[in-house]
Design a protein around this nucleic acid. Structure first.
Lengths: 341, 341
DNA sequence: CTGAAAGCGCTTACAG
DNA sequence: CTGAAAGCGCTTACAG
């Protein structure tokens, strides 16, 4: 604030300026800012004081260059994805703890995943967290040679990279256990087609049904992780009212909401007439008027593990790739209950 | 791919390596990569070829440092905010057109707006787009001296910064015009308390009602831009069924959805018994089972203008601050219709 | 603690 | 086009 100037100050203060003002050497200022031993408390104070008065802030680009290390972890995200938002919430503090800086690069219409990744590589990220990637394995392998890549939410076996993902089968199993314990037998699964995680969830559904001796009740309807697809599946069920299931397990929350809505429009009440469960514990599921029973994938833990995995690979390049499976948690809300009768 | 090595390659290729491989000078490589005149087509090809074979990519940090210009625009965002996502979609291509790089910094629980901004300043962003900021004017003024700051969605008069925001009053006016033309007179407004844009929308509601000679029907209920607050406001209305309005205009979509839900639970149908309109044209509003009449704030245009405003301020520091008001557009969907009668 | 020096990977003139 | 040079703002070791 001791600036007094008007207009934008083009020449920003450098370490040199701080050193001059504090009456110390440039090397000492560098040392103080890096929190290294070798300066007395009094000197540190003087340096910080001078820096504050000048509005000095170390230049990240210069630091990166001089260190030949950036200490930056890049994160490829999709803004609209609330699960990614949850992950990012966990990633920032985890990175800070380990002394790393985070750079976000978003995919969006007109900016594909590769472009987002290339931008991060240009910034010389040492680590690269790929949230819900849809990149081909060859490319991931290639990028994995330039940075410590950690896909989150999908495994890339044989690409030489660590990954973090939810233990899908455990989440699905919890859902089916929950429904079966309530007394449901006719439990239909609306799947997510080729969407991430769908294949695992479909398979886990079959397995869990069999475990409960409900092999004969296995029934999978094709879906797509959209509300419309969920509604359509529900219409299919409603077409034969005499054989309505007592519960529907959808492959994600959006599809579950479509199912819910179609049932409601058809005059069925949830969970009175039919129970519905989703997957993701999205913001939508949490809305009080939806109040959907669903599965939380523990993004907090996944984000934290992803950062740690990247840092491990950066700091010890000889540590091999590791797959981290995070246990999801069933969240019981208002759309599941005992079947009528 | 001509790498053949195993394990992560620590020493990344530099311009020097490319020059050697292509058999040209370092300066020439620099020139080619910056797309400057002074190299023949054949030479350019050779350089690009060599770079591709080596997997060379210019080091952003080194470029920034050497240019004493970063050509980077930082963006402070909130991941969970879909409006911000829409803005970011527009910001990337707009920045690329003008030759700028984008750096995203997210706010999140445990990482406040200042922290997000400071991180961007550390990366020497020349421009700073603040999406839906809640920073105090003093701080904005201060940051505005270090970079070309452009708040989006809120004005900071007297802070010496340009801003981009929606022409709230025009959006509200379109909603009230629409409802009035349908024949509604009892139009209640559920406001957003102190949330961004709420004050303007509240005021515009009153003005628009007066324009239609509906001053006596002005009625504002306190809200909060949440679904719960919307539901609560609806309960208040339902408490006196004999004086139910024919239409409700909520200050944002989430509140509108709360209103919708409370009415439905009370056995009222929309738009049959009562019309409901929101604001934002969020993803929620677009869900087919909600299908909410609302106002689109034209994020595409706002994002584009924000980038342009920042670049204008960067490249011509003498251009004064400018406020850009973007016209919103009414999106008529299924929750509004003629009142019963 | 200081002070001088080299280097990180680029850009930017400049003489040839 | 080349080639040598200075500089961007730091870090890093090193002799004193």
């Amino acid at each position: 604030m001791a600036e007094g100037g008007n207009g934008r100050r083009r020449g920003k203060p450098t370490m040199e300026d701080v050193a001059a003002k504090a009456g110390v050497s440039r090397a000492l200022v560098s040392l103080v800012f890096r929190d290294q031993p070798g300066a007395s408390e009094a000197t540190r104070d003087r340096v910080y004081q001078a820096a504050a008065e000048l509005g000095y802030r170390p230049d990240t680009a210069a630091q990166m260059l001089a260190r030949s290390r950036t200490r930056v972890i890049g994160v490829m995200v999709t803004m609209r994805n609330t699960f990614h938002a949850d992950l990012v919430d966990a990633i920032y503090p985890a990175a800070e703890d380990l002394g790393y800086d985070i750079l976000l690069s978003a995919t969006s219409p007109g900016r594909d995943e590769r472009q987002a990744v290339e931008a991060l590589l240009g910034h010389r990220c040492e680590g690269l967290l790929l949230l819900g990637p849809n990149l081909d394995p060859e490319y991931v392998t290639h990028v994995g040679r330039q940075a410590a890549v950690v896909p989150v939410g999908r495994r890339y076996p044989d690409c030489g990279v660590s990954s973090v993902h939810a233990a899908e089968s455990k989440g699905v199993r919890q859902v089916i256990d929950h429904l079966a314990e309530l007394g449901h037998r006719d439990i239909v699964h609306v799947d997510g087609g080729d969407r991430p995680g769908s294949a695992e969830r479909r398979k886990a559904y079959r397995t869990a049904m069999r475990r409960h001796g409900l092999a004969d009740h296995i029934r999978v309807l094709a879906g797509k992780h959209t509300e419309a697809a969920g509604a359509e599946a529900a219409q299919q069920l409603l077409a034969d009212r005499t054989h309505l299931p007592t519960a529907v397990f959808a492959s994600n929350d959006r599809a579950a909401i479509g199912v819910l809505d179609a049932f409601q429009r058809a005059g069925l009440s949830t969970p009175g007439d039919i129970s519905v469960a989703g997957y993701d514990d999205s913001l939508l599921a949490q809305l009080s008027h939806i109040d959907l029973t669903t599965v939380n994938q523990n993004p907090q833990r996944q984000g934290e593990l992803a950062v740690r995995a990247a840092v491990a690979a950066i700091e010890d390049p000889d540590s091999g790739p590791q797959d981290h499976a995070v246990d999801p948690k069933l969240v019981i809300r208002g759309t599941t209950a005992q079947p009528r009768g």
